Simulated scan of single mutants.
Amino acid sequence: MRTLFLIFISLISTFVKAQTDTVLDTIYANDTKNVALFFPEPIRQGITGSDNFVFSYNREKEQYFGLLQAKPGKESNLLVVNRNGAIFSYIVRYKKHLSKLNYFIPLSNSIGNEKPIVTDSIQVVTSEKNIDNRTYYYQKFCSYLLNRNQRIGRIKKRMQGIVLNVENVVFDKEELYFVIQIENNSTLDYDLNFLNLSIETRQKGKKKSLQSLYQEPIYKHYLPSKIAEGKMVRFVYVMPKFSLSNDRRAILELNEKDGERNIKLNISHRYINNPN
């Protein structure tokens, strides 16, 4: 009990110090809906400062998300500690009508670590520490999307046993996430040459033509180089946010290396302008 008390005092001390340096974000909740908070590492401990706020998380098996609910009353604070010791702190307030139900917390929002980082003679370097926080966020959010069973519509095309399918288009922050599936129902492996996303514009006038503009992905999550026969792969393209007028559409072009099983899949402006 004394050990837990000392840990709690240490956390509060860190929190107070961080408040002097950082303006805390506010998260709103109510008593009719669950507000989900997704963290970059599994939650080890979550504490609210008032009984009218409840933060629930799996205490037996560490998971990446917790659920926040609130009853009417004064604002309070939420303190969360991840498995790696990273500390996150937020102001929490009751709000009858909520405009946001999901918060994806990047590692950059951490106010510090419960354990001081000490330089040791033996340095352990992980791949996650070598990449920037934004890429780390893309990794976690893409993994979350691949675990969801959500579809935006039927966006699919087949060619000689190869099926290209856009399962979902999701908007988050300033990016569009394209959840893509490729299925190989043929008897030959499929070697991927490229998979490009372009915006195609129909030129008006007597001589109608098409103009295509390639869109460079910000991040590619689990993009394969080969799809074995009889196998299916799912991955995510992260693109800068964009919208399309009625005379424009997105084109997803799948090209086979040293082969002719190429597919061009049209994505209507409706799916781009109304993502999940």
Rank of each mutant, 00 (worst) to 15 (best):
D31M: 09
G73I: 12
K231L: 10
E260G: 06
L79R: 03
E216N: 07
Y138W: 11
R270E: 15
A86N: 13
K71M: 08
D132A: 09
M239H: 06
S10Y: 05
R158F: 09
V92W: 13
L213I: 13
A29E: 02
E75F: 13
Y271P: 03
T32I: 12
K157Y: 03
M1K: 07
K156H: 10
I131K: 12
A250P: 04
R270M: 13
I218Y: 05
S89H: 09
E41P: 05
G85A: 11
E175R: 15
K61T: 15
S76V: 05
P224F: 01
S225L: 01
L78F: 09
Y57V: 09
Y177D: 07
A228D: 12
N84I: 09
L6P: 00
S212A: 05
K17A: 13
E62Q: 15
R151P: 01
N273Q: 04
T26D: 00
E256N: 02
H269R: 12
R270G: 02
S56H: 10
N276L: 15
L146F: 00
Y138F: 15
K257C: 00
V166M: 04
S143R: 09
R234K: 14
K115I: 13
G205V: 04
Q45V: 02
K206Y: 08
N102M: 13
E253M: 00
E260Y: 08
K207L: 14
Q211K: 15
P40D: 12
E60C: 06
Q211N: 11
L101T: 14
K129P: 07
K156F: 14
R134G: 09
T135N: 13
I152H: 09
S243F: 15
S198R: 08
P72E: 12
T48I: 06
V35A: 03
Y28F: 15
K220A: 12
V81L: 14
Q181C: 10
F141M: 07
P240L: 13
K220V: 12
D189T: 01
Y222H: 07
E200K: 12
N133S: 07
E256S: 04
N276R: 12
A250N: 02
G230F: 10
T14Q: 10
D21T: 08
E75G: 07
V236R: 01
L254I: 07
T201V: 03
V236F: 09
L6D: 06
Q69P: 00
A250Y: 05
C142E: 01
L223W: 04
L107V: 10
V54S: 05
N185H: 14
Y103N: 05
V169G: 01
E256M: 03
F39G: 06
R270F: 14
R202P: 04
Y222A: 08
I91C: 00
E229V: 05
K204L: 13
F15E: 07
V92K: 11
D25I: 02
V236M: 07
I155A: 03
V118C: 04
N165H: 11
T119C: 07
T14V: 11
N102A: 14
Y137R: 06
T126V: 02
R93F: 01
E253Q: 02
D191M: 01
S89R: 01
E62W: 08
L164F: 10
T48S: 15
E62L: 15
G66Q: 06
V233K: 00
F194W: 00
S50G: 11
E229N: 08
H97K: 10
I122L: 14
T14Y: 05
N255F: 14
T48D: 03
K208L: 09
